[in-house]
Amino acid sequence: MVPLSFAGRDFIATREGALFCTDSRALIVADLHLEKASWYARMGQLLPPYDSLATLDRIEQLADRLDAAALWCLGDNFHDVGGPARLPAGARARLERLGRRLDLHWIVGNHDPQLTETFGGSAHEEAWLGGIALRHIARRGARGAELSGHFHPKLRLSVRGHRVARPCFVRAGDRIVLPAFGSLTGGMAAFDPAIADALGPIEAAMIVVSGRLLTFPNAPAALSRPHAMAQCAGRST
């Protein structure tokens, strides 16, 4: 958990990839993709039916630790429109409990354009939180502060022959893309042109490690060189 100043407000960035707005006590997460496993199960791949539970457990722990008053989920909350109907009883109870204790807000995403249930919260196409726009996908060319998800940014590095990868925040000016929070979500390279295309020139990827916010600047060449970070690491050893 690291303080992060953004759009003139104080936030806390967490290791799990959530943001917490300290004055509104709002916890913000992106791309939960609840019931992703059962979506695959429907297609014949019987993945462990615990992904929603795992995701909600982590949210609950964070909400406890930060004493959150509100929870904002930035879209692709469920892996598909049928997701809420498939929630196992345990995960459903967990979600309803969150809805009772928190001010729960769902931004809809491309995976769940209609939210059939809100679990005691409310659904929005987009929303504003103290002057900051909350969206599922960063709006191209938009001005002003914005938090969004959708891209599942992930930082992949090769350091001394060891490969490490972790979901990361991506920042361009006063706009941030959050990493995917869901337990079964994959990732896209942090400096992928697709993200820059929506967000504008990316300044840095950020992760929280050992109580520090590590910032990885986007080398200009990185857009065309997918392993530019590896080169940085390689040269010094």
Binding site: L155, L157, V159, V164, R166, L214, T215, F216, M229, S236
Partner: peptide
């Protein structure tokens, strides 16, 4: 893993 990320960040910052 954490140590590797920290190492990489230092190097990347230096390079930049």
């Amino acid at each position: 893993d954490d140590a590797l990320f920290e190492e990489a960040e230092t190097i990347a910052q230096e390079a930049m």
